[in-house]
Computed example of a mutant assay.
Amino acid sequence: MANLGERLRAVRKRRGLTQRELAMLSGISLSLVRKLEQGEREDTRLETLRRLATALRVPTSDLIVRGDSVDETAPAGLWSPVRAALKGLPADGADEAPTIAGVAGVLSSAMPLFSGDQYAELSRVLPGLLRDADALGAEGRPVRSRVLHHTGWLLTQTRQFDSAELALRRALDEAPDRLDGAAVVNTWCWLRMRQGDLRGTIELASRWADDVEPRMSRATMAELSAWGWLLVRLSTAAVRDNQPGEAEDAIRLARTAAVAMGGEYSPAGDFLRAFGPLTVAMKRAENAMVEDRPDRVIDMAEKIPARDLRPTSNNRNRHLLDVAAARVQLRQYPHAFELLQNIRHDAPEWIVNQRYARDILGQIIGRRRTLTPDMRDLADFIHLAL
């Protein structure tokens, strides 16, 4: 299978472009184009690939090479007990048999840890919770599916992609109905997108969105949330794959679902299904950032009260990174740095896992001759090499 450098070079030559011309058309530095083609850089951010693909007039997915799992062993000490429990490996000792009510109660009490990105605490809670859920038998399928779903979401968040896929496959197998299945697929689409599988994301989201599309005249909040999220995933994958028309059609339908809900839907005990007009607005801003429209991102962000979105903190923080990236493109570096500092304060364990945050800070630092102590401190905190 051709690697990224070989694919990029082959497409560039078919288009009759020099490396310098490709760099000018894409807005990517000539040195990065050369490094990618020569194999000195084995990967790059999806947004960078999209800019190259746009200049070459091909879908982004034509340049993507899917490899093995990404960073699967990076925090081995933290996540190895979770992976062992997920695979059904036994633990030392034996406790009394778990009950459905007991496992559901533990999961409910752990929700603030998930929504608050408390990874260290979750790494201690999840192994036992997974084993207890496995011991419930057939009647425990609904709660077991939810435990596996949230585990898959967490492992996707922390780039444990192989383990995340195992958790989500199991969660989908255990899902008691199609709406629960759609919620799992929503997270699975996000996993596929983080793996660079844009075409797979588009196909999966389209198929499930068609399957769960409700009748608007009698749709429940849960149905609208499930359908809307799948449309959002379709849109965010399509815009990255240079399919702006399909991306816009999907986000418009998602907005239709959100408007019909009349406000943000935050079901008790499951922040992953929270959805509404503000969620769609943040995803519209994300699409605008992918399309290199920083002015549009800022205009949209000013209408989004992101600080109030505690039940969807992960979406909020991702949105704030988009705003910070837009500020950098507009040369508003102090504003961008302040946003990164605020995210660190609110979600320290989350930001450490965000390559996007490192890229943004790297751009800020790269435009300064000397660094402030705060900049050095943040760079150390998110593991950005200076």
Score class of each variant (00 low, 15 high):
129 L>P: 03
10 A>K: 10
132 D>K: 06
175 A>P: 01
281 A>D: 11
375 M>L: 08
286 E>W: 01
32 L>V: 15
321 L>Q: 15
38 Q>C: 08
360 I>L: 07
79 W>M: 15
262 G>A: 09
301 A>P: 04
293 R>I: 01
333 Y>L: 12
314 N>P: 01
134 D>T: 05
204 L>V: 11
302 E>G: 15
284 R>K: 12
382 I>G: 03
279 T>P: 03
69 S>L: 09
313 S>T: 15
323 V>M: 07
179 L>E: 04
62 D>Y: 02
222 A>H: 04
139 E>H: 04
61 S>K: 14
299 D>Y: 02
146 R>I: 05
376 R>C: 01
31 S>L: 10
41 R>G: 03
324 A>N: 13
10 A>R: 14
201 T>S: 12
246 E>G: 15
41 R>T: 06
121 E>L: 13
45 R>M: 02
132 D>E: 04
290 V>A: 10
319 H>Q: 11
156 T>Y: 00
28 I>R: 02
299 D>S: 11
230 L>W: 01
335 H>F: 02
357 A>S: 11
225 S>K: 01
297 V>G: 02
317 N>D: 14
289 M>G: 06
218 R>P: 00
279 T>Y: 08
293 R>M: 03
328 V>Q: 10
329 Q>L: 15
281 A>H: 03
128 G>F: 05
24 M>C: 09
231 L>F: 00
319 H>V: 13
184 V>W: 04
283 K>P: 00
32 L>Q: 15
137 G>Y: 08
336 A>I: 11
181 G>H: 04
29 S>D: 12
115 S>G: 12
330 L>P: 03
125 V>A: 10
24 M>N: 13
126 L>F: 10
300 M>G: 01
315 N>Q: 06
371 L>T: 08
264 E>M: 13
147 V>T: 09
318 R>L: 13
345 H>A: 07
148 L>F: 12
371 L>E: 05
18 T>W: 09
139 E>S: 05
328 V>Y: 09
304 I>A: 02
338 E>N: 14
39 G>L: 08
191 L>Y: 08
107 L>A: 14
131 R>E: 03
107 L>T: 14
257 A>K: 14
363 Q>L: 09
172 L>F: 05
325 A>D: 15
320 L>E: 15
285 A>R: 00
257 A>S: 14
205 A>C: 05
288 A>F: 07
182 A>H: 04
265 Y>W: 13
378 L>H: 01
334 P>Q: 07
293 R>W: 00
87 K>M: 07
296 R>D: 11
342 N>E: 05
234 L>E: 06
